[in-house]
Structures are given as C-alpha cells and as structure tokens.
C-alpha cells in the first residue's frame, strides 16, 4: 500500500493533506491499468488472428500487402500519433505543475487536433483501399487487416471524444482532483494507443511489405 506522501503519479499532485483523495486516485489509476491490460489481450489476439490470415490461403488470390499499403500515409500517421503522445505528455505536465487551466486545455486541444488528423489520414487510407476493391468482404486477410486497424481507429475515436469531454470538464468544473485523475487516465489510454500502433506499423505495414 502506497503511503499518501510517496511520490505521485505524474500529472497528479493533490498535496499532502489530500491523503484520502490520493489513495482513491491510486486505486482508480490501478484499476485503469488493469482495464488497459484486458484491452491489450483483445488487441494481442486480434494481432494473432491477423497473422494467421496474412498468408496465401488467407489472401484468397485477392489484393496482397504490396498492392494496398501506402507507406507514406502510414509514416505520416505514425508521426502524428507520436507527436500527439508528446503533446499529451506536456498537457499532463502543465496540470501537474498547476499552470492555469487554459494552458492545459490548449495542450489537450493540440493533442485532439493531432488525433483527428491521424483519423483523417486513416480514413483516407481505408478509402483508397476500398477504391482498389480491397474491402474486408474480399478475403480473410483483408478482414483481419480492416478489423485490426479499425479496432485501433475506434479506440482513437473514443480517445478523441474523451479529450473533448475532459476539455469540457476542465472548463466547467476546473482542475478538481477527480478531473485531474480522469485526465491522467486519459493520458494512459492515449499513450497505450500509441504503443499498440507500434505493433500495427511494424507487423501489418512493414512486416506486410517484406
């Protein structure tokens, strides 16, 4: 059990006299880690299923990775997501160091814009694939690809909505301890999605092209 005055999670600084509230925050953050790990299993097995479909049998004489992968787009998506991870980190730092709420909101807003840009590029990628007839109903391989990348995109979409909600909450409620704890968890979620993306660009895109 962590003592109230132990070093806190970054982004969370409730002060020494908030012992009870701090323990509560620790519990909630730990719970969120557990949730993320459960989600990681979901992603991991989607990866495993994709790998079992990414072969000649799974491609069913349909489009191959070389036909459909637009590496420039993927690289741009990767950089966008990575930069948004950084800006979110800065947002949590501004919150931890008790800077004015509007500074935090600005950095959160920047992360949101980058996340939306990522989604835009992902949508473009999906559209290009669909135009080439590379839709999930074409083959098992494409089903696997669309579902894996789509699962990630759905998570990023949820993350974007969550950022919007948190911006609204900071505006309405201020940097209340509960709001801080939520932003902290949102940060874990956002960084986690970037980690999953490492797997996607390494296995699906780069691995697919080899």
């Amino acid at each position: 059990m962590t003592q109230p005055n132990a070093k806190l999670h970054p982004g969370l600084n409730l002060g020494h006299h908030h012992g009870e509230a701090h323990n509560q925050a620790e519990t909630v953050v730990f719970g969120f880690w557990v949730f993320l790990m459960s989600d990681l299993i979901l992603f991991g097995l989607t990866f495993a299923s994709y790998i079992t479909l990414a072969n000649n049998m799974g491609m069913a004489s349909g489009p191959t990775p070389a036909d459909i992968i637009d590496l420039v787009n993927v690289f741009a998506q990767t950089v966008l997501l990575l930069v948004s991870s950084l800006t979110f980190g800065v947002a949590s730092l501004t919150m931890r160091h008790k800077m004015p709420a509007k500074v935090t909101i600005a950095w959160l807003g920047l992360s949101l814009v980058l996340g939306l840009a990522f989604l835009g590029l992902a949508a473009l990628d999906f559209l290009n694939m669909a135009n080439q007839g590379a839709v999930p109903s074409r083959s098992g391989y494409l089903s696997g690809l669309w579902s894996l990348v789509g699962l990630h995109a759905v998570h990023v979409t949820a993350g974007c909505f969550w950022i919007m909600i948190m911006i609204a909450q900071i505006a309405v409620l201020g940097l209340h301890p509960i709001v801080k704890s939520r932003v902290l968890r949102l940060g874990l979620f956002w960084h986690f999605l970037d980690i999953v993306w490492i797997g996607i660009f390494s296995i699906v895109y780069l691995g697919g092209l080899l």
Partner: peptide, 28 residues
C-alpha cells in the same frame, strides 16, 4: 522540476521517433 520532466518527455519522443524512422528506412 517542470523543465527536467519536459526534457525527459522530449528525450523519450526523440528516441521513439528515431526507432520509428529506422524500420521505415529499412523497408524503403
């Protein structure tokens, strides 16, 4: 503290970016 922590984030970002560019370069 803020500066030190910001530097850590930037260091992590730099490393991550490098580790992204290398595999893409290998494939391209």
């Amino acid at each position: 503290d803020f500066k030190a922590e910001l530097r850590a984030y930037l260091l992590g970002f730099g490393l991550a970016l490098a580790l992204t560019v290398v595999p893409f370069a290998v494939v391209v």
